[in-house]
Design a protein around this nucleic acid. Sequence first.
DNA 1: GAATGAAGCGGAGGGCCCTCCGTTATGCCT
DNA 2: AGGCATAACGGAGGGCCCTCCGCTTCATTC
Lengths: 225, 225
Amino acid sequence: MPSTYRRPLRLANPADRPHPTGRIGTDRPMGRPTAVNPPPPAKPTRKDALSNRERILTVARTALAESSSASLTAIAKQAGVGIGTLYRHFPTREALVMELYRHDIQRLIDRAPELLREHPPLEALRLWFDEIAHYGRLKYGVAEVIHAATNGGRDDENYAPFVRAIALLLDAGAADGTLKPGLDPEDVLLQLSVLWRIDPARGGEERARRILALVVDGLRAAPDA
Amino acid sequence: MPSTYRRPLRLANPADRPHPTGRIGTDRPMGRPTAVNPPPPAKPTRKDALSNRERILTVARTALAESSSASLTAIAKQAGVGIGTLYRHFPTREALVMELYRHDIQRLIDRAPELLREHPPLEALRLWFDEIAHYGRLKYGVAEVIHAATNGGRDDENYAPFVRAIALLLDAGAADGTLKPGLDPEDVLLQLSVLWRIDPARGGEERARRILALVVDGLRAAPDA
DNA sequence: GAATGAAGCGGAGGGCCCTCCGTTATGCCT
DNA sequence: AGGCATAACGGAGGGCCCTCCGCTTCATTC
């Protein structure tokens, strides 16, 4: 019987909070970029580091699947690694979760242009939203992206592509006149953040769909113009 | 120099979390209701309890105004009261904040019927949203209400009236055909929860207004029906 | 005014988050 | 092979949240 600790889940003014910085792979003065040399989230070069990273991810995947609020301490322990190591690899909880969802998120991002090729913009947007609503993992993935970005994390790594995907859809809709022109993709992204506040147990999916439909309607061009 | 603790602000599946229960005023077997006898949030009867409660509120008001994420520990200490006492009075952080915002929230709720008397429904809804966007305190107050409710708190105490206020506006709009019929007020409330994710520092107010405008448009009756 | 029982107090205790930094061990170079 | 610089490790430490429960102090009764 674990404990009865109820996770904070604070509701703080974003402006209050400092912001974290990852470190792995950054210590190196980074001589001439060898080939593929993505900045902070670069995969560690040392063998032990790499294996640790994998181990953490494996453990985290199952642990977080069971209870999305599993403690990092527990994950570290179960992965046989010090808490400091976990943080070295994933400077924030979001970073860890993001890594787990990265594939799903990326697939979602890729879907935007695909859908646009197969459907008219408005329809594409609808379908895209549907995918988000349908796959719980995507919902939480999206939530993480928004969350990280909102908290001043400047987590452009994952945030920017997402915004671009939305912008793509919005622009297409603006071009053919079905959506309002000049919409801010970040506004829309923010509206999606509602999704993770929905209790999935109590008619979650249904509610999610309803709300997304409302959002789409809000984005449509005013027909009386 | 305080500390560098970065508040969790977790992003957990609501279903994972147990839920708290207040206690003050509930120990008494509550004989025949004396007159005004609201259930749990009843004001304590003992003199010391009452003064403590006031003291906590006073301290909390200024502390939270300074930094919306002030620690409860600090507040308790500053109020010259044990942490246990603080929790006895306000079983959760939301409860405390809610109490501070109670007046503002109540005023906002009261505004709904007032606005409906003075304006057509759609306009009333717009104005109501404007008030939320404009007063930061309301924004955070609203956030707390939603937050508490969303976390299975069944915090009907504050949640229900709010939902009713929205329902009022929606019904009026449905009646005169400017809003969609059959809208779920809780869906709308949930959409408002976006507001507190907006960083107030970076063009917050402007963004809030934009998004609220989108929300309203989403609620409007489809003119092509 | 004393007795008494329950409301209320308060802080220890368990759990978590995250940072810091002394220690370890790996990759690379000679 | 041996040495070295340093990437990476890991856990102590400081801070926070929240619960539990023995002790204190009102308020009420006699």
